[in-house]
């Protein structure tokens, strides 16, 4: 229903949940992003792969309009983030890298606050909050304080929160950092099912290679530049390597020791 009613001028851009083209950004002399272009089609899980400092967070800041892109163009469902922020941000769900829940408040209070930030209230907001908690399997903890949750559970609440406005595009900035294996898996499964069942476009930023599934799209960002975009087989092929891990090492020119630093 939502994509059908959107009538942007550019039909090609409407096919994408997110399209970024020719975006550069600098802080003073330091160039954080240099001519970055990528697309996230509907129903696609796109991994934004890059080491720390590659420019992932800067890109996320621009997409969420913390500050404006000075060059290039960012469109969410065809809506230019800079020119029509309201329309663009309405369709965007975000899970930030840092923890952003109020630890003294209960799960449901946290979700209600976020629903209000999107102009939702009353029964509609209540229902959405309950449904979102059910989606991430935390219904029974609705009235618990966030403080009492494990890291993985808190992450799931943040995912539930980002779904309240029923987004078409979900951004996750290193969502599994600091989680144990079980929590990582459950977070990944929730997000992957959103892609498969709801046709959501997902941009998943990470530096962990083992989070990549064979069917994912990869965008490799290194020192502010895009080095590769495409599927997993192509990624391995482009590097002439035998595995994703080795392809990543080859393309970014990092040794094994540099990578373990990152871990």
């Amino acid at each position: 229903m939502m994509p059908a009613s959107v009538q942007p001028r550019d039909t090609a851009a409407a096919m994408e949940a997110l399209s970024v083209s020719g975006v550069s950004h600098a802080f003073g002399d330091r160039k954080a992003l240099d001519g970055v272009s990528l697309t996230v089609p509907h129903g696609t899980f796109v991994v934004l792969l890059g080491l720390n400092g590659a420019g992932k967070s800067t890109l996320f800041s621009l997409i969420t309009r913390l500050y404006d892109n000075v060059s290039g163009e960012i469109r969410i469902l065809g809506h230019d983030v800079r020119r029509r922020p309201t329309a663009a941000l309405q369709r965007l769900g975000v899970v930030f890298q840092s923890r952003t829940l109020d630890t003294d408040l209960t799960l449901i209070q946290n979700l209600q606050y976020h629903a209000a930030l999107h102009g939702l209230s009353g029964r509609d907001a209540q229902q959405r909050c309950r449904a979102a908690l059910e989606r991430v399997g935390l219904t029974d903890r609705a009235d618990a304080k966030v403080r009492a949750l494990s890291g993985g559970q808190a992450r799931r609440v943040e995912i539930a929160r980002s779904l309240l406005q029923r987004p078409s595009l979900l951004l996750l900035d290193e969502p599994t950092v600091g989680l144990d294996i079980g929590s990582r898996e459950s977070v990944m499964n929730i997000v992957r099912s959103l892609v498969a069942k709801e046709g959501m476009g997902v941009l998943w930023a990470t530096h962990l290679i083992d989070e990549i599934a064979p069917t994912d799209q990869i965008v490799l960002l290194h020192k502010g530049r895009i080095l590769y975009t495409g599927g997993v087989p192509g990624f391995i092929g482009a590097a002439g390597a035998d595995s994703v891990r080795n392809a990543f090492r080859k393309l970014t020119g990092t040794s094994a020791s540099a990578e373990s630093d990152v871990e």
Binding site: T64, R65, P85, L89, S98, T100, D102, L117, G119
Partner: peptide, 11 residues
Amino acid sequence: TGAMRTLLVSP
């Protein structure tokens, strides 16, 4: 911690 960003990403 990002709570300000949560606020600012509201439409």
